[in-house]
Design a binder for these strands. Sequence first.
DNA 1: TATTTGACCAAGA
DNA 2: ATCTTGGCCAAAT
Length: 108
Amino acid sequence: MMLMSKKSFTERCYELLKKVPKGKVTTYKSLARALNTKAYRAVGEAMKKNKHPNTIPCYKVINSNGSLGGYMGSDPKNLKKKIQLLRAEGIEIKNNKIDLDKYLYRGL
DNA sequence: TATTTGACCAAGA
DNA sequence: ATCTTGGCCAAAT
């Protein structure tokens, strides 16, 4: 079995992300902060590498200014999917932006 | 080991 | 509001 395996930064991002409740979102910055680092960019990298969209809801991770960020690469085509998934949880998106005061999860 | 690469951020112009 | 610039840091090369 796996002994002494430490969790990578990437895995820790995923763990945190799973704590975000339905109807809420988080940001790359928030995740980094919850991990006591300033590696906002590295968080983005982690999400990009996500190969399990079904178990890891990376569509809930957006930019700290409320704009959407990417989804499954930086292809804008996939962004529609992200928007749909968010709307499916009751999150409003106006002008390609999300109201953080309303939807940001602050319980990490 | 060193360099490069981003689904980012914040402050300026 | 949009664009540029410098900074950030884990992972991949």
